[in-house]
Computed example of a mutant assay.
Amino acid sequence: MKEISKKKFSLMVLLTWVILLGIWWITTNTRLIDSKLVPTPQETWRTFIDILKHGYNGMSLWKQLVDSFYRMFIAVFFAIVTAVPLGLLSGYFVFFRAIIDSLVQFYRPLPPLAYYTLLILWLGIDDTSKITLLFLAAFAPIYVSCVSAVSRINKDYVLSGESLGANKQQVFFTIVFPACLPQIFTGIRTAVGVAYTTLVAAEMVAATSGIGWMVIDASRYLKSDVMFVGIIIMGITGVLLDFILRQIEKRIVFWEE
């Protein structure tokens, strides 16, 4: 994008949020919407400051965030180190695809809560079942992106490498893997988003900490201000995570725009 278009884009983003905040302020302060359902921006801010200072249910906000991110980062890490090689191998070798692809395609459309109860029965109610659930949620998008990336590689690159004497392993690491990196990062960004949304479901059952648990617990007592604080925090941290991933992608995949 040109520099002027970037400025216009940023201005439109800022204007959108200003309008949304303005609508929120007007509808809640004029009592068009019951404050028990939607708190005012002022109430939400005061609740955020209170949680920041005193925590929620005796636990600090930072502890809630650390517990949630610990579960998510461990799950995403193991999803990356397993889904990337398996996805690339499945896209490059039909043998691997025949074994793995059908299994992934079977569980991928299943809602997380559909098999979460089974994970609790098998693994218990501690973090192991939650991390496993997030792992499965993050694995599929990365795997599918890797398989798709391999199928889109220009065959001429592979044939050129083979004609120069490169073996399968050399072609894989010098041609296939670098060519797939842009889509791999797209899959990782998608996986982080899916894992973050699944985090709330994972913390709904038998959890005593985490930002998702805080929102669910507040909903039981109709604490809409706490729910709004938790949702806004999840939204902001989600945007920051995606921004960090895009910056890492720019450094690693430097040949892409």
Rank of each mutant, 00 (worst) to 15 (best):
P141K: 07
T237A: 11
L123M: 06
L121W: 05
A83Y: 05
T128R: 06
M234Q: 10
K155Y: 06
F172I: 05
D242V: 08
F106W: 02
F106M: 10
A79V: 05
F254Q: 01
I232A: 15
A79N: 10
T132G: 01
G22Y: 03
V104K: 04
M234T: 13
P41L: 08
R97T: 01
D126N: 14
E162F: 05
S145H: 13
D242C: 08
S68R: 02
P39C: 04
V18M: 13
I125N: 09
Y157H: 06
A149F: 09
Q64N: 15
V38M: 15
W25R: 02
P182I: 02
S209Q: 12
Y115W: 04
S102Q: 08
G193P: 09
L37G: 08
Q105E: 13
Q105T: 06
V84R: 02
V226T: 15
G55T: 06
G210H: 02
C180Y: 05
Q183C: 00
T237P: 07
I142D: 12
V81T: 11
G55Q: 09
R108S: 10
F243P: 00
F73T: 15
F173S: 08
A79Y: 11
C180T: 13
I142Y: 09
M12P: 04
V194H: 03
F69W: 15
G187T: 03
I120D: 02
W45R: 00
R251M: 12
D127A: 09
Y107D: 04
V144I: 15
A201W: 08
W122D: 03
I244P: 07
L14M: 13
I131P: 04
M234S: 14
F106P: 01
Q42E: 12
L222D: 08
I236N: 10
K223Q: 14
V253R: 02
E203T: 10
E43W: 00
L134P: 11
S224N: 12
I4M: 11
G55K: 03
V144D: 12
F185T: 07
G193W: 05
D156N: 13
L164F: 12
M72I: 14
G193D: 04
L134Y: 11
N29F: 01
A207D: 12
P85W: 05
R71P: 10
R189V: 05
L65G: 02
